[in-house]
Amino acid sequence: MRINRIQNQTIELVENNESTEIDLSLMDSLITKLKSKHGNLIPLLQGVQSIYGFIPKEAFTKLNTEVGLELSSMYGVATFYSQFRLNPVGKHIIKVCHGTACHVQDASKITTALMDTLKINDGETTEDNMFTLESVACLGCCSLAPVMMIGDETYGKLTNKSSSKVLKNIKIQESKANKK
């Protein structure tokens, strides 16, 4: 039920409230572009999320004062659709597909293997803010099941080993980039 999501998100929202500082001026061009458009609520929230990776509380307030959208309807929409997040996420979001085809090919094994490698639970973010692990409905690459998506890259025909290897490679690339 979608109501479950509201509960989960509210609790975490309170916890994470103070820690982040957010540059709200990044939203200005988005607001100018969509302000007067019919049915702009979802595109606005999508735009905000693509800027910050999630929808910060302050962004809701800004949309309320500058566009005139009601807080309650924005919050209603943000908790209804699975795309929207109210909490910060890791740099890389790992979406493990749990569609039918992937389920039949044992996608839960992949999630378990990734949970072991990252030492987090499904839906959580690693301490270094590098990875967020998510289970998602079908990614539409069913013939390559089981599948996961990191960023815009899709990885197919996964095994426990190969999925952990993908993460290792990303970690190596990240540490190389840091050294430079």
Partner: peptide, 10 residues
């Protein structure tokens, strides 16, 4: 196209 296991439309 939300059906898990379908990718015709994609």
């Amino acid at each position: 196209e939300g059906d898990p296991g379908a990718f015709m439309d994609r």
